[in-house]
Design a protein around this nucleic acid. Structure first.
Ligand SMILES: [Zn+2]
Ligand SMILES: [Zn+2]
Ligand SMILES: [Zn+2]
Ligand SMILES: [Zn+2]
Lengths: 160, 160
DNA sequence: GTATTTTAGGTTATAGCATAACATAAGCCG
DNA sequence: CGGCTTATGTTATGCTATAACCTAAAATAC
């Protein structure tokens, strides 16, 4: 996993949005896909916070920014971002979050803080390997995974 | 994990329902909780199939059996079963499935076949350990997990 | 055994999440 | 430009889940 700041670390957050948008542009250019205004704004909305946002929450912010007000506007932009690995869906929350290291194709593993709602991704390989091994023992072939943990981040642990 | 038949194994399925109900009675008796008619019927509906059922699908079957027709009827029974470890919620499917080994308190790991919708639970400990390790490295304390894999079961792999 | 408290089941209503289907507009390419 | 493809917007609808209120049944207290 590249060296992106973790949601739980104190960091200069102003870079998160600009870097994220820049990386997205690079990735999409290679794939000859367009980062249109709605898509760009949607990604920016997600990048602004290290937590997952519901589609309707995103939609409200898009509407404020002058885009369409109907659900498909948000869902389509979110679907596009997820498809290209720029965002992930957090199933436990029925919500979406920007990916902090979209250049490496990966199945995400989420750590969700129930105290402050912060959301971080963590090392997927060992977890995925353990899951593959268990699945293999059952004769099952894994294609996609959702691996999510709910708990307390370092800061909220101290506060509690 | 006790010796219960796996959804992917060929097995005498007539035992699954009766054994499951018997185990539920035992567990609830110890906790002085009541397996009321709706709850019993709900569990039986889930036990009848080795797959996850949506709450409204359960509700329809409850209504057919003479119980109430409104969502809370199903949701309350399902919530009770989940609370006592007799069923699990599969977040990837927004659906519920009976647990095949409810006596051991466990966080489930699901294998969901996209071919036949069969759902099996598998060894959680190694996966959970890997996840705990990754979380610990980030200073995060895991309280609850959702670990789910989508793919192909042995039978559907052969068929494909 | 009846009164009191607690737990469960039933209803109506509404909130929250997601997609189908169709129309318009913008980019792309001969 | 003209025709094709992709993207945006709209209306309408469906699926998932819970709040709030009322009645009934069971457990417990007297
Ligand atoms: Zn940041
Ligand atoms: Zn990611
Ligand atoms: Zn069976
Ligand atoms: Zn289980």
């Amino acid at each position: 996993m590249p060296n992106q700041p973790n949601a739980f670390d104190t960091h200069d957050h102003s870079h998160c949005t600009t870097d994220g948008l820049a990386r997205a542009e690079g990735i999409l250019a290679l794939r000859k896909q367009r980062l249109t205004p709605v898509r760009r704004q949607t990604l920016q909305i997600l990048l602004a916070e290290h937590r997952a946002l519901g589609a309707y929450e995103v939609l409200d912010k898009l509407a404020e920014a002058g885009f369409g007000k109907q659900p498909p506007v948000a869902y389509r932009a979110l679907e596009f971002l997820v498809e290209h690995g720029l965002a992930h869906k957090v199933r436990r929350l029925n919500a979406f979050a920007a990916c902090m290291h979209p250049e490496t194709d990966h199945a995400p593993v989420f750590l969700i803080c129930r105290g402050c709602n912060a959301l971080a991704e963590t090392a997927a390989e060992p977890v995925r390997a353990a899951l593959d091994a268990a699945a293999h023992a059952a004769g099952f072939t894994v294609e996609r995974t959702s691996i999510e943990a709910l708990g307390l981040c370092p800061k909220c642990k101290v506060a509690a």
